[in-house]
Amino acid sequence: MNLMSLQRQMTRAVMMPLTPREGMRRVSSNGRSMRAIAAAFIKPNDRLTSFDRLEIYNRQYWFRILSSLAEDFPGLRAVLGDSRFDLLAQAYLSARPSRSFTLRNLGSRLEGWLRKYPTCAGSRLKLALDMVRLEWAHIEAFDGKAELPLTAEDLVGADPSKLRLRLQPYIQLLDLRHPVDDLLLEFRNDRNTTFASNAFEELRKRKRLRAIARLKPTAIFLAVHRLDFSLYFRRLLREEFIILTQLRAGETLRRAVESAFRESSIAVAERPSCVQHWFQTWATLGWFCQADKNEIPSQIRIREDNEI
């Protein structure tokens, strides 16, 4: 057996889902005995069979990636409950094994996978999708690139019909159907309270269930951003969201603002002061950086209500 064949053989075994009792399966996906497969390439010793030795790696693999995913998506776990989350995590990681050298990217394909296999989220699909998007945005914003912020001098004499402002790469813009930002903050605050007792854990679970039950679908627009290296959620008006997404797509300042007010309920007389206030806030937060002249504008749309 050459190196590549051995590594493929072992990878197949290591990535095989565990039994409900967290052991290695007795039969492979193509019906072969795992004892025979293990014995064919792994030596036994005086205490462990070939199967036992391979099982150590099989268990380590799943324990590592499941705990990593759970750590990255505590909100999704709370929304789905422990059992459903565990099933979802195993199904997702079986279908989409890591293709990155870093565990940081383990959840990068979770939203797309969940849209393809919606039954995995049960009756809370829309809420689960919102939470996945928020938690992935959190990861992206945490260690995303920051460039030098734009200064007032950079804008002197700029023509709004030609000016293309660029958003900091770390800023994540989300249009969501549920106020999952509040929910996630509540869960995180709750998690920071540490009492080591089963009774307290039960109380915490019931509290979470009540919070989820109380949550009513409400469209929100959100920026996940950083300030002094700490992460924040900032709610946006629909018009703010459109301007920012249009700017990110490479539109000019004038076209971005025009798009934002096309179906706006903000009175025409108030719009200039609104825009001025928004831009002041965004500039104070350091959200703009030098425009990339090579960026090509693309169409941005807002998700329809019935779209998943």
Binding site: M1, Q7, M15, Y61, P97, S98, R99
Partner: peptide, 21 residues
Amino acid sequence: WGSVDGRYTHDLLPMPYTFEA
């Protein structure tokens, strides 16, 4: 080793002690 065909195990898997390896 720990990856094969672009899939990562995120583990430090043991080598076969061969001259080819």
